[in-house]
Simulated assay, not measured.
Amino acid sequence: MGADIQTPNFPSAEAGASFPTPPNQQKPDPFPAIVKNDPARTGFDPRTAWWVNYFRILTGKITPEGAFHYRESRYKAHEARDCATCESYRDHAFAHSPTVRFLREKVESLNGKLDKDNVVCRRCPARLTEDGQVHRQSGGFSPGHGILICANEVRDRGHLEDTLAHEMVHAWDHLRWKVDWVGDKDLKHAACTEIRASMLSGECRWTRESFTRGNWTLTQQFQDCVRKRAVQSVLARPRCKDDVQAVKVVNQVWDSCFSDTRPFDEVYR
């Protein structure tokens, strides 16, 4: 991160707005082509009742690819319910979470604003690509719109709080330093804000890693989690060529960014 600059305004998103990359930063899609469902190949037929498809999954008559498409179809069917639950969790976090309330105050001190108008819950479709990878997200931050919380990926209040705090760190970083999000100038910006967001949000604390992700290693667990998540996020940037470059750029900024706990005095969670 660089020196202090004049902080831009943080505009509210219109209701129902998406979170695209700003027009001057549109880049080619870095992912392989998306794999679409073919009932003849996967065994999953969206025209069939959901419980029939569910039973077919249990009996092995639907492939893992078909199970992916089934899951996405259920998310679409439950979109209104999931968004309502997400909004309830969001409002609870704004009212009661010490971390979220602290970050909100710090964003306001930089002439920014985060509230229900620009912290929105939406269904985020996952992507299954030709290389066999599933691309999901829990949320996102856009300087021109606000914060997106992926309602269909929210597990509970704690998970939403961590996701919201992660994106709020990005918002604070954007106002404090004008971050090069895409990496047009330097991927180090993206690497640094991802290290800080994973470190300060609480998503890498031991209980989250152990009980949710099955990582029971105590030694270096926190650092390993932060590093892994930062590498994954940098790798998703259009300007990042491969995982080797992602690891390299995270390593280059690790010492300075991992030790930078601003706006907190220290890592509390």
Rank of each mutant, 00 (worst) to 15 (best):
D162H: 13
R127L: 15
A84E: 15
R229M: 00
F94Y: 15
Q223P: 00
I57Y: 10
Y89M: 14
G60H: 14
V179R: 03
A13D: 05
N152L: 03
T261A: 13
I149P: 01
K27F: 12
P32T: 01
M199C: 01
A67H: 10
N53A: 11
S198D: 03
D29S: 09
K61G: 15
K188A: 14
L58T: 06
M168F: 10
M1L: 06
H174V: 02
L58H: 05
G60D: 12
C121H: 06
R155D: 09
V249I: 15
A171V: 15
E266Y: 11
E79R: 15
L58G: 01
P46N: 07
R74E: 12
A13Q: 05
F141Q: 05
T217S: 10
D162V: 05
F102H: 13
E14Y: 05
S88L: 14
V154G: 09
A84G: 12
V169D: 02
C240V: 04
P39N: 04
Q26A: 08
T217V: 11
M1T: 09
A197S: 15
I195M: 04
Q25M: 14
Y89G: 08
S88Q: 15
V107P: 07
F68V: 12
E105Y: 03
Q25W: 10
D173V: 06
L148Y: 01
S233V: 00
D131F: 02
E87R: 15
C124S: 07
S109R: 04
I149N: 05
E79D: 13
P39C: 03
H92E: 11
A171M: 13
F211M: 09
L235S: 04
D260W: 08
R101G: 09
M168Y: 06
G146C: 11
D156H: 05
Q221H: 09
R101I: 09
D38C: 07
R123M: 12
I195Q: 01
W181M: 07
V52D: 14
E167I: 09
D243P: 00
E209N: 11
H69Q: 11
P23L: 06
C240Q: 03
Q25C: 12
V100W: 09
P125I: 01
P22L: 04
V234I: 06
P32W: 00
T59M: 13
F211D: 11
V182N: 08
F94P: 14
L58D: 08
I34F: 11
S233T: 03
F94W: 12
C150R: 02
T63I: 10
